[in-house]
Amino acid sequence: MTTALLAVLIVAGSRNLAHFDAALVGYTFATLFATFGITYRYAMWLERPPTRMYWRRGWQFFLSPRELPRNLVTATKRAVVEFAGNRFIFRRGVLRGLTHWLIMWGCLVAAAITFPLVWGWIHFETVPGDIESYRTFVFGVAGGEFPVDSFMAFVIFHGLVWASFLVIAGVMLAFRRRMIDHGAAAVQQFGEDILPLILLLAISVTGLMLTVSYTWMKGYAYSFLAILHALTVIFTLLWLPFGKLFHVFQRPAQLGVSFYKEAAARGEQAHCRRCDAPYAGAVMVRDLVTVERELGFRYELEGRAEHYQQICPRCRRAMFGLAQASLWTGHTASSED
């Protein structure tokens, strides 16, 4: 459905393909496939019991009429500080934050320029009677004009160059970390951690080579470079739903979770059935019990607690030690099943 919707928007936005650039048709089909793949994976992800539960709860608490105005303000603030500014990643390390920030903004700028152009949503025309000026059309509707030789034109028409600078710097920092950090090296996987960096680097470098070719080398090997660049972009788009970059679509769930957790913290608290200390929001404990049952876990108890989730993590650790010690002191905490 989302793929069909995008296809309709492409046709509508390019005015029945009148402004569609046929040379970019490969990119178009790759984006259509990526849209299908991402939507399908997202739908499958939401099918998982814990994801479904958190998704529902996140929206429920966010849209709660009494809290909605405050939630909107909070969501905007967090979107800017946490997502746009990557504050939580900077807290893991300045270089790590910088790495992610550079890659993220490089990709976002590139996507914001490329996709509307590929889909024919934006195009430029010379202003009639003034060949020194360009006019921007968005969805076929005329927008602003600007002189061809202006600084603004230079910035706009080299937008992908600036984006590639950001991505290349970020990817270099990421590679540096993956080469010298023993911890990262121990758990990294080629497909999950290295391949995305290689793809982003390949897109950026081949894209820059196109600019170099037509700016300083009189278009030398331009056709070959155009195909090479297209291949790197199309491969990345096709791979998008399956690899690490899918987190771009998954990550906003962090916002929903924060509203759920805050609402749970304001509400009734669950008290440990063993030590009576509060340890979590009661609604979160109840939801987790539901999720565990849906997943087939059987943590049901008899006695002072009906479910193991009603015992706080600290008591779980203490009980583990007591159970083992009791075997040595003659008490029975064993089972022969």
Binding site: L301, F320, A325, S326, H331, A333, S334, S335, E336
Partner: peptide, 16 residues
């Protein structure tokens, strides 16, 4: 006959 498994929740009321 070593215990086949450690029953952690059986220690609910145990005290050191």
């Amino acid at each position: 006959s070593p215990p086949l498994m450690l029953d952690v929740t059986a220690a609910m009321d145990e005290r050191p």
